[in-house]
Design a protein around this nucleic acid. Sequence first.
DNA 1: ATGCTAATTTTGTTTGAACATTTGAACCAT
DNA 2: ATGGTTCAAATGTTCAAACAAAATTAGCAT
Lengths: 244, 244
Amino acid sequence: MNYTIDHSSSIPLHVQVENLLREMIRDPEFANGKFLPNEVDLAKRLGISRNTLRQATNKLTYEGLLVRKKGVGTIVATKSVNTRLMNWPSFSQEMKALGIKIINYELHVSWEQADKKIADFFRISEGKKVLKLERLRGGPDGPFVYFISYFHPRVGLTGNEDFSKPLYEILEKNYATIAQLSKEEIIAIAANEFLAQKLGMKPGDPILKRKRYVFDPGSRPIEYNLGFYRGDSFVYTIESERKL
Amino acid sequence: MNYTIDHSSSIPLHVQVENLLREMIRDPEFANGKFLPNEVDLAKRLGISRNTLRQATNKLTYEGLLVRKKGVGTIVATKSVNTRLMNWPSFSQEMKALGIKIINYELHVSWEQADKKIADFFRISEGKKVLKLERLRGGPDGPFVYFISYFHPRVGLTGNEDFSKPLYEILEKNYATIAQLSKEEIIAIAANEFLAQKLGMKPGDPILKRKRYVFDPGSRPIEYNLGFYRGDSFVYTIESERKL
DNA sequence: ATGCTAATTTTGTTTGAACATTTGAACCAT
DNA sequence: ATGGTTCAAATGTTCAAACAAAATTAGCAT
């Protein structure tokens, strides 16, 4: 592998090194607990000073991607420790971060009359048609989440979009609608017959139910989302900060 | 205000400066959009090199407490800008918001040897004694959550505190320890014999398990918290904002 | 073998210096 | 006034060097 940096480039060396290291630690040769070359050598190899190298590693250390230990060396943080504050990860991003390849097991698009709950949230009249998207998704070992999404008519979805692609991509690229704020509710429920069958569980098994209300930058409702996660396979991770 | 630092102390200068700056920016004189003294002057005034000062400001900048602008100066981030994430409600606050009066059904305090998991999180040696707090709490209709908390020895709890009062009150008032950041994991599990008995459910019933890692403003671990919520009665609510 | 000691390796801390880049203000010519 | 240039101030980048502190390793004495 030939990780090198460009001294004549206009972008700062420590930024180049930072990006380079981000690639490095994704590389199986270094990933997950492996040692990085020691600072003095690595700096020499890259043709930069140790300080500049540390400028980059400092940032990655803050983010929790690297763990340094005095007298020992620098290792790539194990995944469990990881999970840095991504402000609001979409499902695809969440899974990618965990190194899980997403498989769509089922995908169903339909137009449905808004019931009271949805009409209230969307602030539209009851009975108006809204797009409903149902997806059974999971990893190589089988499905582990059943999604139901309703979209506000305003976003202009036709139902003919390619929903195998990440949702945020469809919304942002094709419709310039940017989700901004979400409100969530999470509870534990027992699987009913339907969900048990979809997720490969027994009725009564624990399921994580996540309701998500999504708003655009103008605080207008754009999506109502329900997710049913297999209790044994999904870990929902949150990182939050307290107001002073 | 005579902010000074101790050159003979064993704790690194840049850490002292970092803490000093944290106080500074809470000071009304600097808080909220005010300019910090320029780097060269401030370094000189503190009797340290500019690099050491930047080591501290870098961290605060990364945390979003300071905003630096080339050619202009460094200002304290305004709170509105800094509200990058939601407030972080404690259990008491959550319940109060829902209009539920909290009742402590059981309360048990003990000292326990830290196992590997806890020792790792607290960054202490395995087997060291830590305070363990177990609480069965709920509303008028019965208990609906079982809490287990472990506290870092640093916070200095004796075990004789009045734990019927809100935790954050005990920590902030008596020990000036302010929780700042938390990491959470939520999964759905089936109730075991013990939890079913405590929460008045049947074994196998769905339970929401919440792991919470709590850090102080210096990112030092202070509490490890486990919460087991009755699936049918508790709603966990989250509000988050997306970075643009 | 066991346990202590010393050497080595590696990251941590700190300083000083030089130059680049960006911003804003002062100044000047039209 | 307007526009452009210059200058000063502030942060940004980068290097070289020295010593401190912690962890591991090697070696030595018992």
